[in-house]
């Protein structure tokens, strides 16, 4: 494929994520979205680069911060907005909200809001793929903070032991809520993976969708050969941990740290391409918001359904 065309495709998806979240920011004061939101603005390139490298049937487990992965994996915008609005037309009929997005039709499996809790799910899915002789792989998406939880270590050990086709994908934004990585971790993620005999790589250029895509393809060639892989991608969270605001005024971090990311952010630099693609994406977003607006609220009959 023409590499320009590929860049445009990736760019368009990244821009969609950015514009969707900017729309969420605009909508938030109206209280149409009555649920906590963890924005991925600044981190779009990770979801976009990784998902573009996957086959459509490769499976992803993401986190409460997964608007980006939902869109990059190909989830429907209509169902996403309806879910955020708490409407019956949402992915999960309004029972999930922003923190538990999923899109089984594009094998984005349930997102969990308990940090690190879905990492072993990806290992389990990969184990099942291997047992059935399938060529599919599973991806566990998690933040840098999640690697501190015991279950991360248990999952790596088991995946290495069983030689399952799982990609451990760490979105390293350097923060867990307001806490910096160096205050929380005494290990280096790649060296740590190596102690399990797991191959790994870090991508520092977390704004570079094509580099992330290529790094993922390289990692997947190891994973498809039946060996787990840890891929760590440095990135920058522009907004507050949860909610739609900035958080530089609280003084725990400086805007300058994020400015270095912004200075390389293609969505901010390539104004020409943005101008070209934006009108159509805006129309899709407006249609999705309309769809949500017109979808009914789930009623009492939904309260006690789907439990078992």
């Amino acid at each position: 494929m023409d590499s320009d065309e590929r860049y445009r495709r990736l760019f368009r998806t990244a821009l969609t994520i950015r514009l969707v979240e900017e729309r969420i920011i605009e909508l938030y004061p109206s209280d149409r979205i009555q649920s906590p939101v963890h924005l991925s603005i600044g981190q779009e390139a990770v979801a976009v680069g990784v998902c573009d490298a996957l086959n459509p049937d490769d499976l992803v487990f993401a986190t409460y911060r997964s608007h980006g992965f939902y869109i990059a994996k190909g989830g429907s915008l209509d169902k996403m907005f309806a879910e955020l609005y708490g409407r019956i037309g949402g992915v999960s009929k309004g029972k999930a909200g922003s923190m538990h997005l999923s899109a089984p039709e594009v094998v984005l499996m349930g997102s969990s809001a308990v940090v690190a809790s879905s990492i072993p799910h990806a290992v389990g899915a990969a184990l099942s793929f291997k047992r059935r002789g399938s060529s599919r792989v599973a991806v566990a998406v998690f933040g840098d903070g999640a690697t501190e939880e015991g279950v991360y270590h248990e999952s790596l050990n088991f995946a290495a032991l069983m030689k399952v086709p799982v990609l451990f994908l760490c979105e390293d934004n350097g923060l867990a809520v307001h806490s910096f990585k160096n205050a929380r971790q005494s290990y280096n993620l790649l060296e740590h993976a190596a102690t399990f005999g797991i191959e790994s790589r870090r991508v520092d250029e977390g704004w570079d969708m094509l580099a992330i895509r290529q790094a993922t393809l390289d990692a997947l060639s190891v994973v498809r050969a039946g060996r787990p892989f840890v891929l760590e991608i440095a990135t920058g969270r522009y907004k507050e941990h949860v909610g739609v605001g900035d958080d530089f005024h609280f003084g725990y971090r400086s805007a300058a740290e994020i400015d270095t990311w912004k200075a390389r952010d293609p969505l901010l630099l390539d104004g020409k391409l943005v101008a070209e693609l934006k009108p159509e994406i805006d129309r899709e977003i407006a249609a999705a918001a309309d769809f949500a607006e017109n979808s009914p609220f789930p009623g009492r009959d939904e309260l006690l359904t789907d439990i078992i």
């Binding site: 708490g86 949402g90 909200g97 609220f297 789930p298 309260l303 006690l304």
Partner: peptide, 16 residues
């Protein structure tokens, strides 16, 4: 609480 996990949608949360 109703005998279900907590739903997110406000219309359900209010009756939950």
């Amino acid at each position: 609480m109703a005998a279900a996990p907590c739903p997110t949608a406000k219309s359900l949360e209010d009756i939950y």
